[in-house]
């Protein structure tokens, strides 16, 4: 079984979100980049399949050289090899085109990507890849088993979950639940040393045009100060919620 895990390089969850160049670019100053959390859940599940079912795990990112540290981290976590498509990830459509092209050449049985990235929140890359390749597709995936060339997976739905079976090749949108937070693999020294020797191929992008462009960013309007209500004066809270905020 060959698995491709798509990795997005995103600002750490505690990062201050600011913009520069007249609010057209994200301010990376002082920001630490991490593996997109949804992708990391997918990667961990893939590494388990490698350990228990001899799967081969390739990680892929579309980005410039600044993304290489997180690819090395993925290798240290356990991926066998890495591919970097040397291009700026302009939009979800462009990224999906690049991933689809790598898939066509590599014939992967499973393609895993986070259900969404925590920076752009586009929630479209895995679905676009599935659509382009006409592979089966399950997103918000919270469990996965692969047996005899068939996948059995659970998808989180509003208010519950749904169990599905599907043939391969299959594209998965990963999220927490696929593995637990406590299952995430922290690379050890041996893993880090091995990662240095594992292949990291840099390939040029294929021709593709983005379908959209971000022209500017803005931050939400500053919020007024909190109105504190005394713990003994619940009536006032109810009155404020009813008459002022009009939410109850």
């Amino acid at each position: 079984m060959k698995i491709l895990v798509c990795i997005s390089n995103v600002p750490d969850t505690t990062s201050k979100i600011n913009f520069v160049e007249s609010d057209t670019k994200f301010d990376t100053q002082g920001v630490q980049f991490i593996i997109n959390p949804n992708d990391e859940f997918g990667l961990t599940r893939a590494v388990w399949l490698q350990q228990k079912q001899q799967a081969e795990v390739t990680v892929l990112t579309v980005g410039d050289i600044s993304c290489e540290p997180i690819l090395r981290k993925c290798l240290a976590i356990g991926a066998d090899k890495a591919i970097r498509v040397d291009a700026t990830a302009t939009d979800g459509f462009f990224v999906a085109k690049q991933i689809a092209s790598v898939c066509e050449k590599g014939s992967y049985d499973l393609v895993i990507a986070g259900r969404e990235s925590i920076d752009h929140n586009g929630s479209m890359v895995p679905g676009l890849v599935a659509g382009m390749l006409e592979y089966e597709y399950i997103t918000n995936c919270i469990s996965l088993e692969v047996e005899n060339g068939q996948a059995i997976a659970a998808r989180e739905i509003d208010g519950g979950k749904e169990i599905v079976t599907s043939e391969l090749p299959l594209v998965l949108g990963a999220q927490k639940g696929l593995v637990e937070e406590s299952d995430l693999i922290i690379p050890n020294m041996r893993g880090i040393m091995q990662a240095r020797k594992k292949p990291l191929d840099v390939i040029p992008p294929i021709d593709a045009v983005a379908s959209s462009k971000v022209t500017s960013f803005e931050k939400p309007a500053a919020k007024g100060a909190v109105k504190l209500v005394d713990a003994e004066d619940i009536d006032t809270l109810i009155d404020l919620l009813h008459n002022e905020a009009k939410v109850i």
């Binding site: 929140n121 045009v209 983005a210 379908s211 959209s212 462009k213 971000v214 022209t215 500017s216 960013f217």
Partner: peptide, 16 residues
């Protein structure tokens, strides 16, 4: 649209 998990908004122009 909202982005950065609701910590910001972006303005996006489509060419399709």
């Amino acid at each position: 649209r909202s982005c950065y998990t609701s910590k910001a908004f972006s303005t996006v122009t489509s060419n399709q």
